[in-house]
């Protein structure tokens, strides 16, 4: 159990690391390039992993509807936006805002898809997060901004 907790924590750290790398690349070249590198490198790594370590499970069961493949397209756009925003926000602020967007959308999707509504605790959570975002933006950004000449689309 402790090991699993450690792995999960570490895994979150890896996400932060990945986004920081992409942000650094976007800052010095372009967010699209960062997303491109991220996906090509990720694809190669996962291909190697699948070929070397997983055998037998790498087969589709049934025919998934085509719209499910849109996840990849949306993921690519996510990395573009995220690595565009990260250099000027700082990692922590950016992470917080992504978490909020993610959770709020998750709750929204739940409201749309589930027939019996959502738990009250979710609503409290949403309110807390919205308040947190407002609060975050009331804090004056102390440090001078990163030069942003080449990062805009």
């Amino acid at each position: 159990m402790e090991l699993m907790v450690l792995i999960a924590l570490l895994n979150g750290g890896l996400i932060a690391l990945s986004r920081t790398f992409n942000g650094a690349l976007a800052k010095h070249s372009h967010a699209l390039i960062a997303s491109c590198c991220n996906h090509i490198v990720g694809f190669v790594v996962l291909s190697a992993w699948i070929i070397c370590l997983e055998s037998g499970t790498n087969q589709l069961q049934g025919q998934p509807p085509v719209y499910l493949y849109l996840g990849g397209v949306i993921g690519a756009l996510f990395v573009v936006l995220n690595s565009w925003a990260l250099p000027s926000l700082g990692v922590m602020r950016c992470t917080l805002l992504v978490i909020c967007g993610q959770m709020l959308t998750g709750v929204m999707l739940d409201i749309i898809s589930s027939a019996n509504g959502i738990h009250w605790a979710s609503l409290v959570g949403v309110c807390l997060m919205l308040a947190g975002v407002v609060f975050l933006n009331r804090v004056k950004q102390p440090t001078p901004q990163v030069k942003h000449a080449n990062c805009s689309l």
């Binding site: 996840g71 936006l81 925003a85 992504v98 901004q145």
Partner: peptide
């Protein structure tokens, strides 16, 4: 700029949730 980028980051979170769902 910070406010605009905050909005961009929030939007990217929306995309992330949709991507994870799909």
């Amino acid at each position: 700029l910070t406010l605009f980028m905050s909005f961009v980051a929030l939007c990217s979170g929306v995309l992330l949730a949709l991507m994870i769902k799909l």
